[in-house]
Design a protein around this nucleic acid. Structure first.
Length: 483
DNA sequence: TGGGGTTAT
DNA sequence: ATAACCC
């Protein structure tokens, strides 16, 4: 099931996947040397078990763009190339290019510290995510052309399940009856490749596809990035970061333990976050080895069976979570943080601003949100930050006016949001907020032409009306009562 | 710490 | 509605 353990299901022959008549040449690309050839070693890979197909052994790629926001900014303004560049949100440098990193700038560094370290640092404001978001989806869509199963992680990372593509290429190789399989990019640990091992061969083909993906992303979008190829998402993600800007690496199964033990602390394990790390540390667990060898029973009692089981699997490099196709977003939100907001009118202005941007976005998306949410963060001196939210359904008459552009949808929405606001914040008492956010969720596709017996009643006469993408919602002068 | 996202409970 | 996770 986990694909990490090559031995798992011994010798069944799956005719479909057997590669016959393939002349396996020497190889190595960058690093590969033919593996040791024991006289009574493994059979040639075209005779081996190929546990692919349903669930056994997968080939996963993790694609991770280099300093994504900075790259987008350099494309927007090529004069920034070659200079140390930081992208600023409020008083933070959230990311920076490699020129800036060489000079000591780090991600999420305070602007003052960054300027001190690097006085020549050029800063651009990155609080408006629009261009980043658009470029991000172009990357995902490009990857979806290779294989439809693409999962986004943030704006700059994607997982792709290559298992089916690899299977097809193996078949093709068999039909062509020849050709050496070589690796593209680095092999983790400089491990020797064994072309008689079908798992190695499949991962090498994955590395070739990964290289093609990076080439396509560069040629079509002008972006560079890293890739990691392995048998599950955890390992692919960990290995993608081994050679850092604009390179790729593949993990062969025999080096899996080395990879996970190269983590210095469990907090570096994707899936183990801030809270879990604290709880594990309280149990005396700090290294991957600590977690591997800790009593499962006690861990379950402490963290619950679900989390305990999942993270202990992770500590062995095992991760059976599927690559879930992300598809279109589940929610749209806009937020703004600030030092202080302490009056209702001030809050209303900020909420109107957030809402105006959101309405444009949701309009361009084409689907309609059925739920709206308001999120706040209250000032608190020491407490680790926590947010509060209130949500409610969007009235159906408002939903229907949502993409039409003809009616004022701001006013009823602002009214709803201010009710949510007063539900959370007692405006008769002093308050101090440091963040406001508005979120549209529960998105549903417009009813398209297909008419089930039920669909008929749900169809709105206005549902496909105009949204050119040019018009924008105004914040002042909010009554646009043109019928 | 920003300005986003996701899923699970 | 919150809490955890991810970037």
């Amino acid at each position: 099931r986990l694909g990490v353990e090559p031995q798992e299901e011994g010798g069944r022959q799956e005719e479909e996947d057997a590669v016959q008549g393939m002349n396996v040449g020497a190889t190595g690309g960058l690093l590969g040397a033919p593996g040791p050839q024991e006289p009574s070693g493994p059979p040639p890979f075209h005779e081996q078990v190929v546990p692919t197909g349903s669930s056994s052994s997968r080939v996963i790629v993790h694609v991770d763009l280099d300093c994504f926001y900075a790259q987008v900014e350099m494309i927007s303004n090529p004069e920034l190339r070659g200079k140390p560049l930081g992208v600023q949100q409020k008083y933070l440098v959230v990311t920076c290019n490699y020129e800036a990193r060489k000079l000591g700038v780090k991600k999420l560094m305070n602007v003052r510290d960054a300027k001190e370290k690097c006085p020549q640092l050029v800063l651009v404001n990155g609080e408006d995510l629009t261009r980043y978001r658009e470029m991000s989806y172009k990357v995902t869509e490009l990857l979806e052309e290779f294989s439809p199963v693409v999962e986004r992680l943030g704006f700059d990372e994607n997982f792709v399940d290559l298992s089916e593509m690899v299977k097809k290429r193996l078949k093709q190789l068999r039909n062509d009856g020849h050709s050496a399989v070589t690796v593209s990019g680095h092999v983790y640990n400089n491990q020797s490749i064994n072309l008689h091992d079908i798992l190695h061969v499949r991962l090498l083909i994955g590395s070739q596809i990964a290289a093609e993906m990076r080439e396509a992303i560069y040629n079509q979008l002008g972006l560079t990035g890293c890739a990691g190829v392995a048998s599950n998402k955890l390992l692919a993600k960990l290995v993608s970061g081994i050679f850092k800007p604009n390179q790729q690496t593949v993990l062969l199964p025999e080096s899996c333990q080395d990879l996970i033990h190269s983590l210095n602390h469990i907090k570096e394990m994707p899936g183990i976050g801030y809270k879990t790390t604290k709880r594990l540390e309280a149990l005396g667990i700090s290294s991957v080895h600590d977690l591997q060898t800790f009593s499962s029973k006690i861990l379950e009692k402490e963290l619950g069976i679900s989390v305990a089981h999942r993270i202990q699997k992770l500590s062995f490099g095992e991760d059976n979570s599927p690559v879930m196709p992300s598809g279109p977003p589940q929610s749209f939100s806009e937020e703004d943080s600030f030092k202080k907001c302490s009056s209702e009118v001030e809050a209303k202005k900020k909420i109107e601003e957030l809402l105006a941007s959101l309405l444009n976005r949701v309009c361009q998306d084409g689907r309609k949100p059925y739920t709206i949410r308001l999120i706040i963060r209250r000032y608190s001196s020491e407490k680790h930050y926590s947010r509060e939210s209130r949500q409610c359904p969007i009235p159906s008459h408002v939903i229907q006016k949502l993409g039409t552009g003809n009616y004022d949808v701001m006013t009823p929405m602002v009214d709803i949001l201010m009710k949510l606001f007063r539900n959370m914040v007692n405006v008769k008492m002093p308050f101090h907020l440091t963040l406001l956010s508005v979120c549209f969720c529960n998105l549903k596709a417009l009813n398209t032409a297909k008419k089930g017996p039920i669909d008929y009643y749900l169809t709105s006469s206005l549902s496909t009306a105009s949204c050119s993408g040019k018009r924008s919602f105004k914040m002042k002068d909010t009554h646009m009562e043109d019928y």
